[in-house]
Design a protein around this nucleic acid. Structure first.
Lengths: 329, 329
DNA sequence: CTGTTAGCGCTTTCAT
DNA sequence: ATGAAAGCGCTAACAG
C-alpha cells in the first residue's frame, strides 16, 4: 500500500495525499476528510526510506561506544536514546570494542546511511578520532564527543573535569589525615590521563609524595583490582588509602584487601570513580566520584540535536564531579 | 558525489558503474579498472538509503528492550549487536520502558522504516505482544522473542527454562537441609510466573510448605530487596533461606539481612538469579542461577538472521539454566 | 485548492 | 560487454 494506491482509492492525486499526510495547508476539509478516511481504513504509514531519500535524512543518530556491557556506557546510551526518541529520531548502536578497525568500519557505515549525527561515548575516541579515515567518514555529520575534544570543525564536546574528580577524592582522604595514598590506573585513555594528573596535582597540593611508586597500573575490572591490591600489599610500606580510576576496579581492590584480612576503611581506605550501582552493591559501600553520567548524556543529546537542526545552543559548561562519601573511606 | 558523477567521470553509464560497485560480471577488466580508479579517487560510497528504497530493506534490525540500564538487557543487546554487525546489519535500539504506549510507538516506527526484523528482549513482551496494534505493526517482519512465545505466524522464540532455574536453587537449599525457604518475587511477567511455579513445584517435591505466606512480593532492585528482607524478618518464624527472582533484589536482601546482624549464609542463605556481575561484587558473593544470557542472545541473533534470509534453521533447544554456588548459600 | 512533473540515488531488466 | 530506461515511494516546485 503506497501513496499511489491511496490516491487512486480516494480519487485524488498523490500530491494531495501527501499534503494530508504531512498536515499541510491548501486542502479543503472535505477532501482532507475523504483522504483521511482511506488512510485510516488501510492504516497507511508512509515509507521512511522513500522519505529519507528525498530528505537526505532518515532521522537517525548513532551512538558509538566501546562496550555496552559497561554500565556507564549502557546508562549513557539509554539516556541518549530516550532523549532522541522524544525528538522523533531513532538510535543506532555501535559497539566498537575500542579498536581502530571496527571504528573505521562503523564510521564508513554511518556515512553511507547518511546518519544525521553521532555521539562518541568513551574517552578512547579522543585517540581513535585522530585517524584520518575515521575523520573523513564522519566529516559530513555533527559529532558530539562525551568527554574529550576532536580537531574537527563539526565536532563538539561535553567536557567533564575528571581531574577535579580525582582531586576531590584525594582531598577528602588528605583531610582525613591520610599521608600515604596510592593510585590505581586501569586504562590508557585521555580521561585516564586527566584523572592521574588530578591525583598528582592534589597530592602535591597537600605536600604528599606522588612519585611513580605510588601509581599502580592494572587491567580494568574485578581481577585487575585484585591484582593491583596484591601489588600494593607487597610494598614495604603499606599505604593507608587507595584511589582507583574506576568503580569496578575499586571493588576488586576492596575485595582483595578484605580477603587479606585488612579492614576497609580502618586499615586502608578505598575510593572509586563513576558512582555506579557497583558502589552501593559492594561491602563496605564504596566512596566514589559522581561524574554525572546522566547529566553528561542529556547534554550530549541536546547539543547534538541542536547541531543537527541548526539551532542555537550555548556551549555546555564543563561538568563538575562531586564526591559521594560512603563506607569505604 | 553520486553514481552519475562517477559514471560521467569514468566515461561510462551508471549501469556499468553499478556492476563494478556490486562486483557483478559482464565488465571487461579494463573498464572495471578504469571505474574502480574513479571510485577510489573519490572514496565513493553508495547511498544506503537509495539502495534501501530499491531493495525494500536497509539491512537493519531492531532490539526492543525494556531498559538498557539493566545489565542483563545491556548484555543481550551487546551480543545481538555484535552478531548482526558480523552479518552486515545495523542495529537500532528501543527502550520501551515496558509500557504499552511506547511499545506501540516503536512498533509503528519500525514498520515505517521497513526494519528487517526485531528481537524482543524481556518477558514483558509476552504480554505487550498480545496488543493488536503492536501485532499489526510488526506483522510484516520476523520477530524473535527471547524467552517467551507470541501467537503470531512470523514470531519465533528462544525458550529458557526459568522454572528449572529456580528449582535448581531450591533443590540445592533443600539438599543442604533447609526446610523453611521463602521466595521473593519482584516482577509480574510470564518469566516471573514460571520462576514462581518452579519454586512451588520444587518445594512440593521436597515436601516443604509453600503456601502464600512464603512468597513475598516486592519491587525490583536494591530497595525492593531491602523491603522484602524487612518483611521476612518481621515473620514469627524466620526462614533459613531466601530464594530471589533477580540478582539485584537478592543483593538488597543480602545487605539488609547483614545489616540486621544476621549471618549469611550461617543464619539465612540467599540465592539470586541471572549470574550477573552483581553476584561477584557483593559480599558474601551470591549463589545465583546462570540462565545463560549470552547463549540465548546468540541463538536469538542466529534465529532472526535465518528467518530474515529465509534460511533453514533448526528451532532452538530450550536453554537449561545451571546453578552457580558461591558464598551466600 | 488540486494535479502534473521532476527529481532523490540506486538496481535491474531489456536492448543493443 | 555496455547502455537506456523504468521503477522503488515519496516530496516539492510549478501550473492551472
Amino acid at each position: 500500500m503506497n501513496i499511489y494506491d491511496i490516491a487512486r482509492e480516494a480519487g485524488v492525486s498523490i500530491s494531495t495525499v501527501s499534503r494530508v499526510i504531512n498536515n499541510k495547508t491548501n486542502v479543503t476539509p472535505a477532501t482532507r476528510a475523504k483522504i483521511q478516511a482511506v488512510l485510516d481504513k488501510h492504516q497507511y504509514a508512509p515509507s521512511a526510506i522513500a522519505r529519507g531519500l528525498v530528505a537526505h535524512s532518515m532521522k537517525t543518530v548513532a551512538i558509538m561506544a566501546v562496550d555496552l556491557r559497561v554500565p556507564h556506557y549502557a546508562y549513557t546510551t539509554y539516556v541518549i536514546e530516550q532523549e532522541f526518541t522524544k525528538r522523533n529520531y531513532n538510535v543506532m548502536v555501535c559497539n566498537t570494542g575500542g579498536t581502530l578497525e571496527e571504528t573505521r568500519r562503523y564510521a564508513a557505515e554511518l556515512a553511507q546511511r547518511q546518519i544525521d549525527g553521532v555521539v562518541l561515548v568513551g574517552s578512547v575516541f579522543n585517540t581513535l578520532g585522530q585517524d584520518p579515515e575515521v575523520a573523513r567518514a564522519l566529516q559530513g555529520m555533527p559529532v558530539v564527543l562525551a568527554n574529550g575534544t576532536l580537531p574537527w570543525p563539526q565536532a563538539y564536546s561535553v567536557p567533564v573535569d575528571d581531574s577535579l574528580g580525582v582531586q576531590l577524592a584525594v582531598r577528602h582522604l588528605a583531610q582525613k589525615g591520610h599521608q600515604h595514598i596510592v593510585y590505581v590506573k586501569d586504562r590508557d585513555t585521555a580521561a585516564a590521563q586527566h584523572k592521574q594528573n588530578g591525583f598528582v596535582a592534589e597530592m602535591q597540593a597537600h605536600g604528599l609524595a606522588c612519585g611513580e611508586d605510588v601509581i599502580f597500573a592494572t587491567p580494568y575490572g574485578l581481577d585487575g583490582g585484585k591484582h593491583a591490591a596484591a601489588q600494593i600489599l607487597a610494598q614495604k610500606k603499606r599505604p593507608t588509602a587507595v584511589v582507583c580510576a574506576e568503580d569496578l576496579t575499586a571493588v576488586g581492590v576492596l575485595k582483595a584487601l578484605t580477603k587479606a584480612g585488612i579492614n576497609v576503611p580502618g586499615d586502608i581506605a578505598v575510593t572509586g570513580y563513576n558512582n555506579s550501582e557497583y558502589s552501593e552493591i559492594c561491602t563496605p559501600e564504596l566512596t566514589s566520584v559522581n561524574n554525572k553520567g546522566e547529566e553528561a548524556a542529556v547534554v550530549c543529546a541536546q547539543l547534538l540535536e541542536a547541531r543537527i537542526e541548526g539551532k542555537e545552543f550555548t556551549p555546555p559548561q564543563t561538568i563538575l564531579p562531586e564526591l559521594v562519601v560512603r563506607e569505604s573511606s
